[in-house]
């Protein structure tokens, strides 16, 4: 059941927990060796999507922004170009996901929202990096690999978020069925 009472302690606690969850995922994925440095799985977006589906748009914004600031603080890139890239990407990603979720409730499931989030994040980062940080449109050469990889990671992140949301908010948050094995174990227990 989505919690919408912003003053409740439970809401605050859940936002804090999801922020911590996002931060942990962010730091975890920065440890994974990557074949191409500009391609990231974007696992931290799972926390944002879960916040969006269980706590609402305001919580999603807080979780995403706070995760960016804390992540770069821990990673030592606060106020550097990569911090601005990261925060611009996160802001556009969370905005796109809120809009798609609100307007496309009947059309897209949580997986579609995840794909849109990854896509918006990638597109914003290429644009900002190309025209503000690097100052050369040659960065467009990265676009195809980033587009296609963001599609795959968005799909995975969306599905992972679906699995989590299906467990912590059993209300129909998405048209996808709850995992069968989980139901079975509930009956046994």
């Amino acid at each position: 059941m989505p919690l919408r009472h912003k003053n409740s302690t439970q809401w605050l606690t859940r936002v804090a927990l999801l922020t911590g969850f996002g931060l942990a995922l962010y730091l975890f994925e920065s440890l994974i060796p990557r074949p191409l440095p500009w391609i990231k799985p974007g696992l931290a977006n799972i926390a944002t999507i879960v916040a969006l589906y269980t706590l609402g748009p305001a919580a999603a914004c807080i979780v995403s922004m706070l995760r960016c600031v804390l992540g770069s603080l821990v990673g030592g890139t606060l106020m550097s170009p990569s911090f601005w890239l990261s925060i611009c990407g996160a802001a556009s990603s969370v905005t796109a996901m809120i809009i798609v979720r609100r307007l496309g409730k009947k059309i897209f499931s949580i997986i579609g929202v995840g794909m849109i989030g990854a896509f918006a994040h990638m597109l914003t980062q290429v644009t900002v990096a190309g025209f503000l940080v690097v100052g050369d449109e040659a960065i467009l050469i990265l676009l195809p690999s980033m587009l296609l990889s963001s599609l795959i990671t968005g799909l995975i992140v969306g599905y992972a978020s679906h699995l989590i949301v299906a467990r912590i908010a059993p209300q129909p948050a998405s048209p996808l069925p709850v995992h069968e094995s989980r139901r079975g174990s509930d009956n046994v227990g």
Partner: peptide, 8 residues
């Protein structure tokens, strides 16, 4: 996956 997701 809804049909909308697939189209997307």
């Amino acid at each position: 996956m809804t049909p909308g997701d697939r189209i997307l």
